[in-house]
């Protein structure tokens, strides 16, 4: 297998960094996209030291949907067509704030659902006929059932799951592979405000599950695997039980 071109959208996220590290020793070439150049630079050096054939960086606000197609075209010229894309940016948001301030709620949905969906559509549109393309998109177990504690974030992630299911269906029989990654709690700066318990997984663990799901061409991967069990139970709880639960 020749070395891949890997595009990472949201490269500063802890999961994206761990994922890129695991891909680097194969000699992959990276294009790392994020908002903060000062953060992207040390990540790029790390990947090169670990064996990446190259690590370019590009600064962009990925939530700017108007600029998506222009940016992709520009990167295509400088970097080439990606073989693999990880979409890892996102925000946990704040449910209580979203209920009070509609701007915050709208932003959570626009970033978590709309912008990601637009990136996926744009990447598929730009793909040359017959060119293989793997898209790994970070969703969340929070998207599996609407819950009082985070249904704005959860709805964005849940909608994304439906969207990606449709993309997979539409591309059956083509060399396009889309995997929805559903992490549970991950020990990252994004969750530093939460009390951390034994259910928290390391970004390395999540990244290893992403790599394995790509290799096995899975459509959905829960990471770590026990979230599949937990969410299957939660999805199937009858309403009269679920409505009494504080989750």
């Amino acid at each position: 297998m020749s070395a891949k071109n890997i595009l990472v959208l949201g490269a500063v996220s802890a999961i994206a960094q761990a994922y890129a590290r695991q891909r680097a020793p194969s000699g992959a070439r990276f294009l790392l996209v994020g908002r903060d150049a000062a953060r992207l630079a040390p990540i790029a050096s790390d990947l090169v030291a670990r064996g990446a054939a190259g690590a370019d960086t590009a600064v962009a606000d990925l939530a700017e949907t108007d600029a998506i197609e222009t940016r992709l075209a520009e990167w295509r010229q400088n970097f080439g067509a990606p073989d693999e894309v990880l979409i890892a940016y996102g925000a946990l948001g704040d449910q209580a704030e979203s209920e009070k301030n509609l701007d915050i709620a709208r932003k959570a949905i626009e970033v978590g659902f709309t912008s990601v969906a637009m990136w996926v559509l744009a990447l598929l549109k730009a793909r040359a006929p017959d060119a293989p393309l793997t898209l790994a998109v970070i969703g969340s177990v929070a998207g599996d059932r609407g819950r009082a504690s985070n249904f704005v974030y959860g709805a964005a992630k849940g909608g994304l799951d439906r969207f990606l299911e449709g993309v997979t269906h539409a591309n059956a029989g083509t060399p396009v592979h889309v995997v929805t990654v559903k992490p549970g709690f991950v020990d990252t700066p994004m969750t530093d405000g939460l009390p951390k318990g034994p259910l928290f997984a390391s970004p390395d663990r999540v990244a290893a599950d992403i790599v394995s799901a790509i290799e096995k061409r899975r459509r959905v991967v829960y990471t770590p695997w026990f979230w599949f069990v937990i969410m299957t139970i939660i999805r199937h709880l009858p309403w009269f039980v679920f409505r009494r639960m504080k989750i």
Binding site: A14, P42, I43, S45, D46, A49, R50
Partner: peptide, 19 residues
């Protein structure tokens, strides 16, 4: 523990610099 990036690895001379 999160400051764990390599900054440079010269694999021919055997010198590594890291956070």
């Amino acid at each position: 523990d999160r400051l764990d990036r390599l900054q440079h690895f010269d694999a021919s001379a055997g010198v590594v610099r890291a956070e």
